[in-house]
Simulated scan of single mutants.
Amino acid sequence: MPATELDLREMPPPERHPKIHSAFDDLDAGEVLRIVNDHEPKPLFYEMQAEVETFDAEGYDCRKVEDGKYVADLPKEA
């Protein structure tokens, strides 16, 4: 699956979720938004699951790469 990467670690927290939603909206069906974050984005997962009809919650994946670096894949339904 093609992925668009968005590194949020240097972005102020109030700007993160709007940026994520905008980038996700720009994806084509079947693409993935990969975010790099300084914490596990579990609240974002629940937000996307509840509010974004095209979010593929079952395809979601998050992994801790190192302290202060989490990588999460937010897939858009095909």
Rank of each mutant, 00 (worst) to 15 (best):
M1P: 13
M1K: 11
M1F: 06
A3D: 12
T4V: 14
T4H: 12
T4I: 13
T4E: 12
E5Q: 14
E5T: 14
E5I: 13
L6F: 09
L6K: 03
D7Y: 06
L8C: 02
L8S: 01
L8D: 01
M11K: 07
M11C: 04
M11Q: 07
P12S: 08
P13M: 07
P13H: 11
P14V: 04
P14Q: 06
R16Y: 09
R16Q: 15
H17T: 10
P18V: 01
P18D: 10
P18C: 03
I20C: 01
H21G: 12
H21S: 12
H21W: 15
S22A: 14
A23S: 12
D26P: 00
L27N: 10
D28N: 13
D28I: 00
A29S: 12
A29Q: 14
G30N: 04
G30C: 06
V32I: 15
V32A: 02
L33Y: 10
L33K: 10
R34V: 08
I35Y: 03
I35E: 02
V36R: 14
V36P: 00
N37P: 04
D38C: 02
D38F: 11
H39V: 08
E40H: 04
E40K: 05
K42W: 15
P43N: 08
P43C: 05
L44W: 09
L44I: 12
L44K: 00
L44A: 09
F45D: 09
F45N: 06
Y46H: 14
E47W: 11
E47D: 15
E47H: 10
M48E: 13
M48N: 06
Q49E: 15
A50K: 09
E51S: 11
V52Q: 09
V52W: 09
V52M: 04
V52S: 00
E53T: 11
T54A: 15
T54N: 09
T54C: 07
T54F: 06
F55Y: 08
F55C: 00
D56K: 04
D56W: 04
D56P: 03
A57Q: 12
E58Y: 06
G59E: 11
G59P: 05
Y60N: 04
D61E: 15
C62K: 05
R63N: 10
R63P: 05
R63S: 11
R63V: 14
R63F: 01
K64N: 13
V65R: 09
V65G: 01
V65A: 09
V65N: 08
V65E: 15
E66T: 08
E66Q: 14
D67K: 06
D67T: 09
G68M: 06
K69T: 14
K69A: 02
Y70V: 05
V71Q: 05
A72K: 00
A72S: 12
A72V: 03
L74A: 04
L74W: 06
L74E: 06
P75D: 07
K76V: 05
A78S: 13
A78L: 14
A78H: 13
